[in-house]
Design a protein around this nucleic acid. Structure first.
Length: 181
DNA sequence: CTACCGATTATCT
DNA sequence: GATAATCGGTAGT
């Protein structure tokens, strides 16, 4: 949960190797919306019922990507994070503000309007060509295909906490973080 | 092996 | 604002 708050305003970078060109492409955006997911204390978390083949990254080292497939056609990206006391946890990246490689992202999403290009968990993964083969990457390593730039934090405005979206159980937890720009 | 369910999005009206 | 599409994980037979 602390990490979810700290990730707001950081830059998410995706190094894409030749989707449309032979040259590596750099895609990035500022994280503006996150949600924290816990362990046995959080019924809405994938980790609630213990370790499975899917949620394994949530139990491993912190700062790793945890990507999963949902609703038959969408990927969601999380970053594993938990304190030493808790065995598992992750932060769902819900929305980013596109920064570099906007035209590539638009082509990847085959979308006309640049508004709402990355305003949802599934949209981000589509726009950045993220799939489950990119699981368990170290986001603290600048060479990773997916990583976070911690030194470029923007000035945050209007950071608010609300209840998480699409959750029926444990809806009381205000673990969603949003910010304006 | 089968049934059920979901941390979503696009496409209608 | 409402709804269908659609795949894999999980639990139960």
């Amino acid at each position: 949960m602390t990490v979810a708050k700290e990730l707001i305003g950081k830059t998410l970078v995706r190094l894409e190797y030749g989707v449309f060109s032979q040259m590596p492409v750099r895609l990035s955006g500022i994280i503006v919306e996150t949600e924290a997911y816990g362990h046995t204390n959080d019924r809405a978390s994938h980790a609630y019922k213990g370790v499975t083949s899917r949620n394994r990254p949530m139990f491993g080292d912190v700062g790793r990507t945890y990507i999963y497939f949902i609703y038959g056609s969408h990927f969601c990206m999380n970053i594993s994070a938990h304190s030493d006391r808790v065995k598992a946890g992750a932060v769902l990246i819900r929305a980013i503000e596109p920064c570099e490689g906007v035209d590539v992202m638009r082509r990847l999403r085959s979308s006309k309007n640049i508004y709402g290009l990355t305003s949802g968990p599934g949209k981000i993964c589509q726009a950045m060509n993220i799939n489950d083969s990119l699981n368990s990457l170290d986001v603290t390593d600048p060479r990773s295909e997916i990583h976070i730039e911690f030194d470029k934090e923007i000035t945050k405005k209007n950071v608010t906490t609300t209840e998480r979206i699409g959750i029926r159980y444990a809806a009381k937890k205000k673990w969603r973080f949003v910010c304006g720009i």
